[in-house]
């Protein structure tokens, strides 16, 4: 592909402008939202001047604190559980001889990605209502953590599995040759090589949990308002630029985690 012609033959007319349009469509609305979070006027749509005041009032707002705390408890717990499970599952499904049921297991892991969110949401709601009604069981915020863990697992699983498949097995065999126990070989060889995949998977799991609205809205119980639910409640009230400030904070957290995940993956590619 090093021929001088190669760039030329790859061109298609108009594609560049469409790509630029796509980027504009994706970015202009959120950029405007971010800019208006700096608006000093109290009406959302009239620009009056620059201030960081809305960030101040957002950060001092106790409801926001509670929502942020709930979100972090849920997201961090779901991320840890799902990443551990996904790592184990990825090893159990790649470092093995194909076993009967492997395809089915693979489907189960990916199931949460195939089911529309609204269905998962009402199904989870019915499930927790049933066990609360029948056995008197209510895990409190654990309900949300479990619900989130379910859909975080496939997101954590994908990069870890991809990493395992790309890995050079020679080292693992060499370790086995040198009479390392399977656990030692795993700890000294496989795990260190797997870390970028795990980190990348954990970052993705964190973001999907952090941003989830639909499932959280239906499953959440008392005192379990998360940041997306908080924003939802705010949208339905007279809006001030504070909501833009809070939204911008959420976006920045997502951007941070995507970038981290991306940079780790890129380092891996090198």
């Amino acid at each position: 592909m090093a021929e001088p012609r190669s760039i030329d033959i790859k061109e298609q007319p108009g594609f560049r402008s469409i790509a630029v349009i796509c980027l504009l469509v994706l970015y202009v609305p959120v950029l405007i939202l971010m800019i208006f979070s700096l608006n000093s006027g109290s009406l959302v749509t009239h620009w009056e001047g620059v201030t960081l005041g809305w960030y101040g009032s957002a950060l001092r707002n106790e409801e926001f604190h509670n929502a942020a705390r709930n979100t972090l408890i849920i997201s961090i717990s779901a991320t840890i559980i799902s990443t551990v499970c996904a790592t184990l599952a990825a090893i159990g499904m790649t470092r093995v001889k194909p076993w009967r049921g492997l395809a089915a297991a693979f489907m189960v892991i990916n199931l949460p990605l195939m089911v529309p969110e609204i269905i998962t949401a009402v199904a989870t709601l019915s499930f927790f209502a049933l066990i609360a009604g029948t056995f008197g069981l209510n895990f409190g915020i654990g309900n949300l953590i479990l619900a989130h863990t379910v859909f975080c697992i496939p997101f954590a699983y994908m990069p870890i599995r991809a990493r395992l498949e790309d890995m050079d097995l020679t080292l693992e065999y060499a370790a086995a040759d040198l009479y390392a126990t399977p656990w030692k070989a795993f700890k000294r060889i496989t795990l260190p090589l797997l870390v970028p995949g795990i980190m990348s998977g954990a970052a993705l799991a964190f973001i999907v949990s952090f941003d989830d609205f639909t499932i959280t809205q239906l499953v959440a119980g008392p005192g379990q308002t998360t940041l997306p639910l908080y924003i939802w409640n705010q949208i339905r009230r007279p809006m001030t630029p504070e909501i833009n400030a809070i939204s911008t904070i959420l976006l920045l957290v997502s951007i941070l985690f995507v970038s981290v995940s991306f940079l780790i993956a890129r380092r891996r590619a090198k």
Binding site: V84, A89, R95, V108, A123, T124, L146, T149, P182
Partner: peptide, 25 residues
């Protein structure tokens, strides 16, 4: 391989109980 297979159990159990079972319900 036999042992490794079992490693996928926690993930399958969680999705099975809190993902698949609700759909059956």
């Amino acid at each position: 391989a036999r042992r490794n297979r079992l490693l996928s159990l926690p993930a399958l159990l969680i999705i099975g109980i809190f993902g698949v079972l609700p759909l059956l319900i």
